[in-house]
Amino acid sequence: MSNASETAVEMTGVHKWYGAFHALKDINLKVARGERIVICGPSGSGKSTLIRCINRLEEHQRGRIIVDGVEVTDDLRNIDKVRRDVGMVFQQFNLFPHLTVLENCTLAPIWVRRIRKKDAEEIAMRYLERVRIPEQAGKYPGQLSGGQQQRVAIARALCMSPKIMLFDEPTSALDPEMVKEVLDTMVALARDGMTMIVVSHEMGFAREVANRVVFMDEGQIIEMNEPEAFFSSPQHERTKLFLSQIL
């Protein structure tokens, strides 16, 4: 049995249905601490559903999901613990438009971690510097470009000092010239040792940073491998088909 503290996320035999539609079929996945996973696959394959089950934005009906030693169930206390330690970045950014950038970042630390406002702002400014937009702290999300908004979203998630970061297609809604700035931020995050599970089509990012690439189709994991092996010699025909379409 592996040492529990070294496993960040463990999913065993996870199934999920939307009504009668079988969205996730027998998912088995183990993510070690500090590991970077990139999940790819055609649309509708269940990639987003998978990571949204990790922080209980979606409910799984069968199987077990254990995040940092805590099992994800209906128990509100477990859900709270998991959500504090897991950060998420969305495709549509989902910044709070009625709050400034700084307020977006300090909201959760103040109200959930009960940190003093001054300390929360210090932490927020530090992370805003890390994503390289400290000067935007007083602006509102509506005044920023897409790339800037997504970087704020990353900083906002980091302000809660999560142990694991989930990314749901973070660059899919961005104009091409802004994709690089966000990917650079994510690469820097990876180099600092953050455990990351990223759903993305950006294969360059996968090659540079990922420990493993996971290919999903029709709700199941088809193939998993290290990036080099994954891209140069895919085994399954579905994987080959998918790679031929995007590379």
Binding site: N55, L57, M88, F90, F96, R156
Partner: peptide, 13 residues
């Protein structure tokens, strides 16, 4: 939008 609720939940609120 639902995204606002989800973002708030994912921050632990």
């Amino acid at each position: 939008s639902r995204g606002q609720t989800e973002a708030a939940y994912s921050l632990g609120l």
